[in-house]
Design a protein around this nucleic acid. Structure first.
Lengths: 346, 346
DNA sequence: TATATTTGCGTGTGCGAACACGAAAATAAA
DNA sequence: TTTATTTTCGTGTTCGCACACGCAAATATA
């Protein structure tokens, strides 16, 4: 392997000079710079990033701002674990990762947590921008301080985020439509359950519905679906009553589509109130959802590899900070189909 | 970050002593070794691989022995690219990767290529052990020379490979059964096409068939399938004749299952000889297969993330060589479901 | 010509770990 | 007790690179 001192020797200069050339630092005459550059090019020399990061020994700090996961909704656990896994890899490059979490149903918690986060002087931030208005505030601060940020999981337009990492919600919805159609063939009548509690990611949820309907449109199939709005997911008894009523009023319903990560809640209720065979399709590989899959209460889950999203957000930011490598503006995760037979391998 | 000298200071010894403890080298009294170990554990200290590889300054060589991909069958392209991608990551640790490829239909090519490979004095080898008998020969040489090896993609028992990276073929077959059933509902009659040309991985292929049938057994569904043996995949005209005959003799057939990576060949033929709506399910995300998916000639592909398999084989071997970290004996890839709607995101 | 200032470049040190060398301490042999 | 031997450690150098420091040569100013 060619080293800086090899180059130096061949150019009859010191390593210091080569170093200055490499970093376009001043203090080198045009003539020698040219000579050195030629030799660098000749050998296609590139600095050894590993030695470099050792020497730099600089401490960069990446912080994350994502919702906390709780017993009800464990969705955000996976991205968090992804960032932690990535942390182990990048700490060798002098990067530390600090996670900050907020209440996904409380915009002020989002803002307050961001304040705390800023006090730690981050060099880069990973954000799940759940609240649009507040995100404008947050990113203004970041922009003013020249701190780069990536969005994860929630796709918002019109910001200066260096990248978005997440799923194409519309395409995921299309796929859900196909799977539903496959489950029910041409005798279908679908209930789409829209839950207001999911203030998070409501953009994605409407895209998932949009895509779902578009599958039927694209394939010249009639759209036979009704939408239910459910507000309170925690009151199980009320939920059962509501669902029972809906099913009684619409006896033809044989498919249920839940475009959020909360399908397990409905699966467990439905299982109690009807013996009808229903095709249920939902999103995300939370523990609760996977349990439903294994118990045959849910037919398919569409997942987005949230662990990898978290992981990627950190490695991407690391590359940006260390090597100034500008990432792709949008990085779409695979649209993963999970069913009983393959869920244990994902 | 905790460093060796931090540990040394806290234990009131020199870095040399800590170093000796870390590498289980002799020359340390039991008492101090114990003390140092305790402090290492307390801080969960791990050596900085970056600095370590710098200091070691040794070049380790990993070689791969996998089939070459050709225009007909591009399956092996993805694992190869995976190893190349991993190579870029691990070269910072002083690892070089050399790829050797053989003709997957010629056992002697397998052996000869291995001979060449051995002349490069590898420190670790990644093998796709297509031919069982010859693999015994090969691994004997490797065992005698104390060279570690991992198997990729082809699962063989009774060898001293440090790990196997690949798919659970039986479970993948089960899934294929489910998808086929879903496509056809209860009015199914399936043609399973077994091609002799796939000398590679015939173990996996029979497991895929076994799993497929088991899906119907497990769900108390009648097995309505017939097996066709096709020898020559290159003679398209003959193939069309053969398939046409089969379809005419079995007019109820509405599903075709190809438990190899060659479903595209059949999809393209079938498309020509019949206007019947057939559900086709096959394996692996080769370019040709994906094309068929996009053209609606194939309903589902089951994939095994071959790129990641290749990638993993290198990083795993790297960890083993550098850190002496013994990997899991079997590392199963996700069983990925590909269909028109999600294939572009995988 | 003498002195001040700028420009160009070499040297030294440190990053964290590995290992060789040799010194001090502990033990054995005399 | 003295000397020889072994055990147990500390020190110094190296890996490739980055950067601070400071010296010398070139140029500007008096």
């Amino acid at each position: 392997m060619v080293t800086i001192s090899d180059i130096a020797k061949e150019a009859n200069v010191s390593v210091g000079t080569v170093d200055r050339v490499l970093h376009n630092r001043e203090g080198v005459s045009k003539k020698t710079a040219k000579k050195v550059k030629a030799i660098i090019k000749k050998h296609n020399f590139k600095t050894n990033k590993i030695a470099s990061s050792l020497a730099l020994n600089k401490k960069l700090k990446i912080t994350t701002l994502i919702p906390q996961s709780n017993a009800d909704n464990t969705f955000w656990k996976a991205p968090l674990m992804g960032t932690q896994s990535a942390q182990e890899e990048v700490e060798k490059f002098g990067i530390t990762v600090n996670n900050f979490s907020f209440d996904q149903f409380d915009a002020s918690s989002y803002l307050n947590t961001f304040e705390t986060l800023m006090q730690s002087n981050p060099d880069g931030v990973v954000i799940a921008p759940i609240f649009i208005k507040e995100t404008h505030q947050i990113t203004k601060t970041l922009d003013d301080n020249n701190i780069p940020y990536v969005f994860i999981n929630v796709e918002l337009e019109g910001f200066n985020n260096i990248s978005f990492i997440g799923q194409d919600a519309f395409k995921a919805g299309l796929l859900a439509g196909k799977l539903m159609h496959l489950c029910l063939k041409d005798d279908y009548s679908i209930l789409i359950i829209h839950t207001r509690l999911n203030v998070d990611n409501h953009q994605a949820i409407s895209e998932r519905i949009h895509g779902f309907n578009d599958y039927f449109l694209n394939n010249r199939l009639p759209i036979k679906s009704s939408i239910a709005n459910i507000i309170d997911l925690n009151n199980t008894e009320q939920l059962k009553k509501d669902l029972k009523l809906i099913l009684e009023e619409n006896p033809s319903i044989n498919g249920v589509y839940v475009p959020s990560s909360r399908i397990s809640v409905f699966a467990n209720c439905l299982n109690n109130i009807t013996s009808k065979e229903l095709a249920l399709i939902g999103f995300d590989n939370t523990e609760q959802n996977i349990k439903c899959l294994n118990e045959d209460k849910v037919s398919f889950l569409i997942s987005q590899q949230p662990f990898i999203q978290g992981h990627k957000s950190i490695t991407l930011m690391t590359n940006y900070l260390i090597e100034k490598k500008t990432p792709e503006q949008k990085i779409y995760s695979p649209i993963e189909i999970l069913t009983k037979e393959n869920v244990n391998f994902s």
